[in-house]
Design a protein around this nucleic acid. Structure first.
Length: 549
RNA sequence: GCGCUCGUAGCUCAGUCGGAUAGAGCGGCAGCCUCCUAAGCUGUAGGCCACAGGUUCGAUUCCUGUCGGGCGCACCA
């Protein structure tokens, strides 16, 4: 960011001197191919029209304007390539040192309030791997957005109303009856998992006479207890996965009291002229707002649809004062986006205040062969089991190194391997190596001052030095891009690249060389700074940065 | 049938919302520990970015169409 800011200021000044406005399509960024230089200005329209005169002139002025620039030359249509002097890059090290854990943070979010809702799995059973992916992405986005200047609250929406809950209560109740020797006829649909049996057993242990109470009461007690028990389990699994939600929002709370939140919202939609009654059902004319068909809010039997409560829920979120809402959903709900978007417009909210991050399916594999992903319990399909087998770090990194909306093959054997198919070790190893060198230095009595002075950094003048420094400088830029596009994988890829440069550096340059103390100290300072960047990046992913491996 | 989405090296995938000669890793081949952690490094081979048109100075990126995957199309939640 230091580099980009410097260049932007200089370029803007030169434009002003010459009576130009900042060209609309101007990009300042590192060129893909480093041989072009450290940074490129691509003032597409302005320079492309006149590459030889204007571009050359700007290049020449840049050199005068900014003493840190070593070389500036017009190249290709619209491009002006710039190379900075080593001393310029060396100043990144004190930048990193003074910012510390906050290095890379920025204020693009301008303190806007964001509510990030993720996981929100129905409390009808334990979390599976797919939920784990959503959890990793949601949590990482939360960390990322906080570092880029947003005020983020995280929330879990508990679907504790409706048919599924009734079915859950029934499933437990029938197990209770079965355990106490009564004849039970099982309906077609009920939850069959072992955890249901466990819950029934716990209930019976607490109250052996449970089966004797009237059916209505028994069902209610089973339902309430089961939801609590399962939610506790979910909370535990999330906690073990380093995921924590600030709020747990109950769907049922939207239906409490006679004049509940859902009715209020439906009344508002009616007042705005969006609803009508047809065939005894109450409809929302979402077609007017970009949906492909109209949707039912209240069924002909008088009960509310899930859509109706969901509208009330999102209304509630805006009521709480959030500037923007981010929902992390499985792609199996993508058909739902249009109608919710329609509802949000109907509430008078701009559409760009509502974002959905879609999470594609996770295919769990072992040795390239699919592991049973059906509703059958037992095999490796719960998040807890997978985490226990491969570890939190490896699982999270795997989830966060892909676009979240494309399907992911999660091969248990590969994720346990220590190859770059599983790059988490590659990145962590870079950090551990840095720590090892700094530890060794300390043991041999070399102390590096903190903070370091610019003079101390002068020996960092090789191409590998400036490659590392350039990369460290672009960290903030990466975080901005990742936050804007809600794409944590940018951070993962950045870290792999930074780790790659560090490993090359390590192989090529001896850091600790007692016969050359100035160079040793400079390189130690560089490593310490790179270690800080690695830690900050891993923190965004929620992955640990070990000192030793 | 309609809607959304994806198609990039043999395999698994990136590609910062139109920019230069499209990048990693794995797998293949050839090398590197008397030296701070070899979970590492170096070199090399491998591409008509599914296909065909269009938009413009310029397209893997945007638009249209075709082919081929995935996912949705409830008065379920």
């Amino acid at each position: 960011m230091r580099a980009i800011n410097t260049l932007r200021t200089a370029f803007a000044d030169i434009l002003k001197e010459n009576g130009f406005d900042w060209p609309e399509k101007t990009v300042i960024e590192p060129p893909r191919n480093p041989k072009f230089g450290d940074l490129s200005i691509n003032a597409a329209i302005l320079l492309a029209k006149n590459p030889h005169e204007l571009a050359q002139k700007f290049a020449a002025r840049l050199l005068v304007r900014c003493p840190d620039i070593q070389k500036a030359e017009a190249a290709g249509p619209g491009f002006c390539n710039v190379t900075f002097a080593p001393a310029f890059w060396q100043r990144i090290v004190p930048d990193i040192e003074s910012a510390g854990d906050a290095y890379g943070n920025c204020a693009v979010g301008q303190g806007r309030r964001v509510l990030l809702e993720y996981v929100s799995a129905n409390p009808t059973g334990p979390l599976h791997v797919g939920h784990g992916r959503g959890a990793a992405v949601g949590d990482s986005l939360c960390r990322l957005l906080r570092r880029t200047g947003y005020h983020v609250d995280s929330e879990y929406y508990i679907n504790d109303a409706g048919n599924q809950m009734r079915m859950l209560g029934l499933s437990v109740w029938l197990r209770v009856l079965e355990k106490t020797g009564r004849d039970v006829t099982w309906p077609d649909e009920y939850y069959r998992g072992d955890y249901i049996v466990d819950i029934a057993q716990k209930l019976l242990a607490a109250d052996p006479t449970l089966a004797d109470c009237p059916e209505a009461e028994g069902l209610e007690r089973c339902r309430t207890y089961a939801v609590k028990e399962i939610l506790d389990g979910i909370r535990e699994d999330l906690c073990a996965f380093r995921v924590e939600h600030l709020y747990w929002f109950s769907e049922k709370s939207l239906l409490d009291h006679e004049h509940h939140a859902v009715n209020t919202v439906l009344a508002a939609l009616t007042a705005a002229g969006y609803t009508y009654t047809e065939e005894n059902a109450f409809w929302f004319a979402t077609e007017k707002l970009g949906d492909d068909k109209n949707r039912v809010l209240k069924k002909s039997d008088g009960s509310l649809t899930y859509f109706a409560t969901d509208i009330a829920y999102h209304h509630n979120k805006f009521q709480r004062g959030y500037d923007s809402l981010i929902d992390v959903w499985g792609t199996d709900h993508h058909g739902y986006i249009h109608r919710l978007r329609a509802a949000i417009s109907a509430m008078g909210q701009p559409r760009d205040r509502f974002h959905v991050v879609q999470i594609q399916l996770v295919n769990l594999l072992r040795d390239r062969k699919p592991v049973g992903m059906s509703t059958r319990a037992g095999t490796f399909e719960t998040l807890a089991q997978v985490v226990q087998e491969v570890g939190v770090d490896a699982a999270r990194f795997m989830f966060l190194s892909r676009k979240s909306d494309s399907p992911l093959d999660f091969d248990l054997e590969l994720v346990k391997q220590r190859t770059l198919d599983n790059p988490v070790y590659y990145v962590q190893y870079a950090h551990a190596r840095i720590c090892a060198v700094l530890r060794r230095a300390e043991e041999t009595g070399i102390t590096l001052p903190h903070p370091v002075t610019e003079a101390l950094l002068a020996p960092l003048d090789t191409v590998e030095d400036s490659a590392l420094l350039r990369k460290a400088d672009s960290f903030e830029n990466t975080l901005r891009a990742a936050a804007t596009l809600l794409s944590p994988q940018y951070v993962s890829y950045y870290l792999m690249e930074l780790a790659g440069l560090l490993h090359s550096y390590y192989a090529k340059h001896q850091v600790l060389a007692p016969d050359n103390m100035p160079r040793t100290l400079a390189r130690m300072a560089l490593l310490r700074a790179v270690g800080q960047v690695l830690r900050n990046g891993l923190d965004i992913l929620g992955v640990s940065a070990p000192d030793t491996m």
